[in-house]
Amino acid sequence: MTHDDILTGALLDDVCLTVDELAQACATEPRWIIERVEAGYLCGEPSQPPTQWRFASAELLRARRLVVTERDFDANPELAALVVDLIEEVHQLRHRLHAAGA
């Protein structure tokens, strides 16, 4: 590939990640992902088996935040999920504050 080629990537949400791909993207193990999903830390509880699960942009970002929080602070998964919930809420509120013209 030359540097002048323009790369066209896949837009997540059009294409979604499997458990293995999400684990790879977060430098973690598939088992880690499955445990966080089953505990409800990563997304809503799925009705299908893990091989059918698909993840989009929002879950990728959330999973990476969970990984980093658990790793950097030796946080247990419940605490990491709580921290990430708060981070997400802060982002939403900042966004609304900006939208309100503040």
Binding site: H3, D4, D5, I6, L7, T8, G9, A10, L11, L12, D13, V15, S57, A58, L60, L61
Partner: peptide
């Protein structure tokens, strides 16, 4: 490593573009 990347029309904030093999 320099890459030229196409930003697709209709992309939203927070969306991720996956570039295989990069």
């Amino acid at each position: 490593h320099t890459l030229n990347v196409r930003i697709p029309k209709g992309v939203k904030e927070g969306q991720q573009i996956r570039l295989g093999g990069q």
